Amino acid sequence: MSVVPTPAAAVSAPAPCSPQDVRRVACIGAGVIGGGWAAHFLARGYDVTAWDPAPDAAARLRRLIAAAWPALEQLGLAKGASRDRLTVAAALEEAVADAQFVQESAPEKLDLKRDLLARLDAATPAGTVIASSTSGYPMTDMQTQAADPGRLVVGHPFNPPYLIPLVEVVGGELTAPAAVDWASRFYDAAGKSVITMDREVPGFIANRLQEALWREALHMVANGEATVAEIDASITEGPGLRWAVMGPMLTFALAGGEGGMAHMLDHFGPSLKSPWTRLDAPELDRALYDAVVAGCEDAAGGRSIADLVAERDRGVIDVLRATGRLPGSAEGAAR
Rank of each mutant, 00 (worst) to 15 (best):
G172H: 08
P149R: 12
I130T: 05
A131D: 09
F158V: 13
S132M: 05
A78C: 06
L64M: 10
A97V: 04
A118Q: 10
Q145N: 12
R85A: 13
G80D: 14
D115Y: 01
D141N: 08
A183G: 01
R151M: 08
V88A: 03
S184R: 08
G171I: 03
Q143M: 15
P125K: 02
V170H: 11
G136I: 14
D121N: 12
Y137M: 15
A78Y: 12
A146S: 12
P70A: 05
R119S: 14
S132Q: 09
M142Y: 03
R83I: 07
A147K: 15
A71Y: 04
A183Q: 03
S82Y: 03
K79C: 10
A68V: 12
P161E: 07
G171M: 04
R114H: 12
P138A: 13
P165Q: 09
G127K: 10
V180M: 03
P107V: 14
G150N: 14
V96T: 02
L61G: 07
A58C: 06
G191M: 13
E108P: 06
P149T: 03
D98F: 01
A99H: 01
A189F: 12
Q145L: 15
L112Q: 10
D121S: 03
A123P: 01
A90G: 15
A78Q: 07
E108N: 11
Y187E: 08
A58V: 00
R119P: 05
A147R: 14
A190H: 10
L72I: 03
G171T: 05
I65E: 07
S132F: 02
K109V: 13
L152Q: 14
A118S: 13
D121K: 06
L75K: 04
L92V: 03
D141T: 12
R85K: 15
T128I: 09
L110D: 11
A91F: 00
D111M: 08
H156P: 07
R114L: 07
D84I: 00
A190Q: 11
Y162A: 12
L92M: 13
T134V: 10
D111S: 12
V129Y: 04
L110V: 04
G171R: 00
D141I: 05
A90C: 00
N159P: 09
V153F: 08
S135E: 11
S82N: 08
M139Q: 06
A99R: 04
L152D: 10
V129W: 05
L72M: 15
A126M: 05
D84Y: 00
P55S: 15
P125E: 07
S184D: 00
P70T: 08
V129N: 01
A67F: 03
H156Y: 10
M142N: 11
L72F: 02
A97M: 03
A59M: 03
P157H: 10
L110G: 02
T134L: 11
A179K: 08
D141C: 05
L166V: 14
S132Y: 02
T144Y: 03
D98N: 10
L120H: 05
I130E: 09
F158R: 05
P177K: 11
R114I: 09
A68N: 14
A59W: 01
A57V: 13
G155N: 07
S105V: 06
S133N: 10
A66F: 04
H156D: 06
L86W: 08
